[in-house]
Design a protein around this nucleic acid. Structure first.
Lengths: 200, 200
DNA sequence: GTCTATAAATGGATAGAC
DNA sequence: GTCTATCCATTTATAGAC
């Protein structure tokens, strides 16, 4: 009765089912602990169908990776739009990241915690990806406008977002007993006090 | 001429050679991209010798993991000893971690960036390990002594050390063009300004 | 486009000689 | 304690029917 139905999914719907299942298993067990056979079984599709839609296992992971990074990118861009101050933008980014961590833990686990270079050797390190570059740019903008102290950009960016990213790690590891939203204001305040230009 | 000599290593020296080689390959390619055969070839020993010293591949990784965490533990304990203030302790910890990242990048890569739960399923998340618990304790001590604002402990701990840990990530990813020591004072200052109790 | 069956290779682990 | 040779399970990927 709980057996997965076969033959019901075709085309794009099947492709999506494979992606969903792969994300679930990759985030739970890791890329290397998930075989094509596992995905086949859980998704209730055939090996041939998987290989019809994806060149190989790496291409499957690549597709997931790009999609999720794109979603983070959109979310961050949207969070920043309409805001002008560095603090407002940074707060909005952290709010969005915390929200995504709560709402889509599998996606964030896969993108933030996996070591993609081990199976996507041509991929740049995640700190060079678009969402992370945007975060750094927000801080550089804050330095140029005199809202943020004149710090080395990497130092300022990691000071602003490093604590938040670690809190996301802790949440994904199941260490925190409250949702991230509870800690959000304090996290933003600590980071901002560290880099803001004193209004003496 | 460059061929690895065989039969030269025995006993403890061979065991250590296997550990060194495994650490090198695990940190370069990852655990799952490193086969026993790879270790055998690079170390110049036999399969049988490896399995004489280690029950299996996981046990090899476990041994590395425990040794390196122990070294971090000792380094952090030593850094804190003789210091009483939260800022002094935190600065000493970050200094030591930065130094270890520069001096032993393979070890830090293996301990900080690998997803150990994928192959050491019984291992606690690294944030629960002794070195990380000590860092949190330093901050809790600072809160109790009134040096640090009354923040949720996880928030205060990630605010103090989150930026530094991300800088270590960046250095291990080859993104920074200066050694970590160059950024150290600024990293510590940013973090401390965020959590210190104002001396108004 | 999806299926089953299977090829081909890899890799963890063991056996038994030395 | 170390070696070589090999077993066996797993897994990626393909072939060919439907």
């Amino acid at each position: 009765m709980n057996a997965v139905q076969k033959n019901t999914l075709r085309g794009e719907a099947l492709r999506q089912k494979v992606l969903d299942t792969a994300l679930q298993l990759f985030s739970e067990r890791g890329f290397f602990n998930t075989s094509i056979h596992d995905i086949r079984k859980v998704a209730g599709v055939s090996t041939g169908a998987i290989y019809h839609h994806f060149k190989n296992k790496e291409a499957l992971a690549q597709s997931l990776y790009e999609t999720i990074l794109g979603q983070m990118d959109d979310a961050i861009a949207q969070a920043c739009s309409g805001k002008s101050g560095c603090l407002e933008k940074s707060r909005a980014i952290i709010e969005k990241l915390f929200l995504m961590t709560e709402q889509y833990p599998q996606q964030m686990q896969f993108v933030l915690l996996a070591q993609h270079r081990e199976y996507l050797p041509d991929e740049a390190p995640i700190c060079s990806s678009s969402p992370f570059r945007m975060m750094k740019q927000v801080i550089i903008g804050g330095i140029e406008k005199g809202e943020v102290r004149h710090l080395e950009p990497w130092v300022a960016a990691t000071a602003m977002f490093g604590g938040a990213l670690r809190m996301m790690n802790l949440q994904l590891d199941g260490v925190l007993d409250q949702p991230l939203s509870v800690y959000q204001d304090a996290v933003v305040e600590c980071a901002w006090l560290g880099i803001r230009k004193e209004q003496a």
